[in-house]
Each structure stands twice: as C-alpha cells, then as structure tokens.
C-alpha cells in the first residue's frame, strides 16, 4: 500500500466524520486512487458483516432484575449507614439541634407564608416526580385543549384554563388530578423538547397569601404565581428560562 490516505482519511470519510472541505477533497482523490477504492469496499463489507452477525450483547431480563434489586438495596443501605454513623455524635449535637429548632421556630412564627410556600413547592416537586413514574403522567391523554378541559368538569370544584402551545414549543400532552397540600389540584402536562413540564392549578385560598416565587432544587425548577383567584405552579427539569417562557405565553 502506498497511498497514505488509505490508512486514515478513508476511514473518516466512511464514518462521515470529515468536514465538507476534506470530504470533497477526498472524493476527488478517490476517483483516481484504486487503493482507496478497494479499502472503502473492504471496510464497507466488514461493517456489513459486523452488523449482520448479531453481535450486540443486550442486558438479559434476569440481569436487569438483579441490578434493580441491587440498586434499591444499595440506596437503602447507604441511608442506613449514613444515619447509624451519625448516631455517635447525636447526643452532644442534640443541644445544638434544640437551639436550632428554637431559632427555626421563631423564623416559622415570623414568616409563616415563607415556610408554607417552601413546603408547598417541595410537595409540588414531589408530585411532579411522582407523575413521571410509568402510567402516572396523565389521566386524560390528548393534545387537544378542547378534550382536556371538559375532562376536568365535575371532577374539581373549578375549571382550570387549558391551552396548547405546540407552535411555541410546549406541546400539551394531557391532564390529571393530583393532590397538593391536602387539596385537589388540576395538573396539565406539557412536553418541552425531551422534558416534561407539569402545570399545577388550584383556586387560591385566603389563608395562603403566597408570594410569587421560583427556585430550583436538585435539578428541578419551579415557578409559582397567582392570577386572578387561581394559583399556578410550573415544575420541570427543563431550564428556568423555559418555564419563564411558558409563563409568558400563558399571560399573553
């Protein structure tokens, strides 16, 4: 073999990894180089052989099951370890804890709405995560707002506003009932690229008096606000800017 390109560039060309310029250059070289032509044919048939020989090793169902158990055990065990290894210093730490509790209680008394909103946002994230479990996402599955909205009729003591924003990149997938803070809420589900967004809607209660807020926790973003006498909260692992965008669309 004399052609240097036969050893290298032909592979990049074959794998579609050359940029446009090098690819064109190589094609004009290929026309006159018998070595490269032969090599190209050879690696083509090698690939066909590899693809047709059923060599891919999938994880067996038994292995999947074993792994699932192992993961569950490991995560459970880690928690037990963490708790028991902390026990030894729990006693001296208790007075610190008591002081912290007292301090926290003062904070609690001074700003009830703040901690209440923290609790509710934690619950909403929890509800979002729960909804992602197989079969939990939607009770009514439809991309049509005129199907989703009537579905809520009679199931709640309010009718949530339902709109589809497919054209703006948020496709309505459906809706379901959920419970947050002991009350029934409507949940609409949107797809944003590969992310799911839950929109929780419930009538504002006077005792709530929650401020608008947004934040993130462990990769999940939320954004909550009030409009008229309804409360809204978006929760997703999509970017915070995506949530702002969806909120903006709803208020247009």
């Amino acid at each position: 073999m004399n052609c240097e390109l036969t050893k290298t560039t032909v592979h990049g060309y074959f794998d579609g990894e050359l940029d446009a310029v090098r690819s064109t250059e190589f094609e004009s070289h290929l026309e006159s180089c018998l070595e490269c032509q032969a090599e190209l044919k050879e690696i083509e048939s090698l690939r066909a052989l590899l693809h047709n020989s059923n060599l891919y090793e999938h994880a067996s169902p038994q292995f999947r099951e074993r792994l699932r158990k192992q993961l569950a055990q490991a995560t459970g065990a880690e928690r037990v370890d963490a708790v028991s290894s902390r026990k030894w210093f729990l006693a001296p730490a208790f007075s610190v804890l008591a002081a912290a509790a007292a301090a926290l209680m003062i904070v609690l008394l001074l700003s009830p709405s703040r901690t209440q909103s923290a609790r509710i946002s934690a619950e909403l994230i929890d509800a979002h995560v729960r909804s992602l479990q197989p079969g939990h996402l939607t009770d009514v599955q439809s991309t049509d707002q005129h199907t989703v909205k009537p579905w809520f009729d009679g199931k709640l003591d309010f009718i949530p506003p339902v709109s589809d924003y497919s054209e703006q990149g948020f496709s309505l997938l459906g809706g379901r009932l959920d419970v947050v803070d002991g009350h029934n809420v409507a949940a609409l589900v949107y797809a944003r690229r590969k992310h799911f967004v839950n929109l929780f809607i419930w009538p504002a209660r006077e005792s709530e008096g929650l401020p608008d807020n947004s934040g993130s926790r462990r990769g999940y973003n939320w954004s909550a606000w009030q409009s008229g006498d309804m409360r809204f909260c978006l929760v997703s692992d999509a970017a915070a800017t995506d949530l702002r965008e969806l909120k903006g669309l709803m208020h247009r």
């Binding site: 928690r79 929890d126 995560v129 992602l132 462990r218």
Partner: peptide, 10 residues
C-alpha cells in the same frame, strides 16, 4: 426521602 427519590428517578 423526597430528594433521594428525585435523584433515583432522574
């Protein structure tokens, strides 16, 4: 628990 469940699901 909630946070751990979130990580687990992610």
């Amino acid at each position: 628990d909630v946070l751990e469940a979130q990580d687990r699901i992610r």
